[in-house]
Design a protein around this nucleic acid. Structure first.
Lengths: 111, 111
DNA sequence: AATTGATGTCAGGTTTCCTAACACGTATTT
DNA sequence: AAATACGTGTTAGGAAACCTGACATCAATT
């Protein structure tokens, strides 16, 4: 994962900030967590700590709900997104390996 | 200011997060504020809200102190940095204006 | 009519943050 | 050497934010 991605995943925001950033109520945010649409970290005292990615995801959730999707729908959408991301990762890995093999071949001829 | 700069200036972090991010004590952070090295915003209830730029600045302060500078020193360093930034801004503005005038001239000849 | 889904609200308890004050060890000044 | 200034720790008392769990509501489904 890139440095940038790591930063975006840092758990740094309390729920109050997230509330202001998303214009959701904390009731809503907690309810979405209960339904596993987000999984914020917890600080030492047990308080939620959100990342910037969590904020993005909450804004997505908001849009889906506004568009008429149910929470179950959104769960499936996210699950599908996740599967696609995994596949993409796998295929990129495979491509990288096959290219490596190819270059190794060329290297042999070159010598 | 760029979109990116705006984001970095958003007051989103409570002092606890900043403490973890900088490894400073909250006593230190408040003391630096008292000495006007940082000026975090305040949320509705009067609690400090720091931006990512504030975190950067605190890390700078930490480095300067470790290097043996006093708080007064750091105040002056920051003041100088600020003057330089202002000058840079001014000169860029002047350059932009003079280029604009120049292009306007060319425009007149072109017609 | 009964149930479900998403959200509001309230209560009681815990954690985090606030300011102000005093303490302390290490310079620096007198 | 004594007094002062600096940077930080620590403590106390109170306010703000957050926590969970429960009950309420209202619209959409069944």
């Amino acid at each position: 994962m890139s440095e940038r991605e790591l930063r975006r995943n840092l758990a740094i925001l309390p729920i109050g900030t997230v509330r202001e950033l998303t214009l959701l109520s904390d009731r809503q945010i907690r309810y979405y967590e209960q339904n596993e649409l987000i999984m914020p970290n917890r600080g030492a005292g047990g308080q939620r700590r959100f990342s910037l990615n969590d904020v993005d995801r909450l804004l997505e959730i908001k849009d889906f709900l506004d568009a008429g999707d149910s929470i179950k729908d959104i769960q499936e959408i996210f699950a599908k997104q996740h599967r696609i991301a995994l596949e993409k990762h796998d295929s990129e890995l495979a491509l990288r390996r096959s290219l490596q093999k190819e270059f190794a071949q060329i290297g042999r001829f070159g010598r």
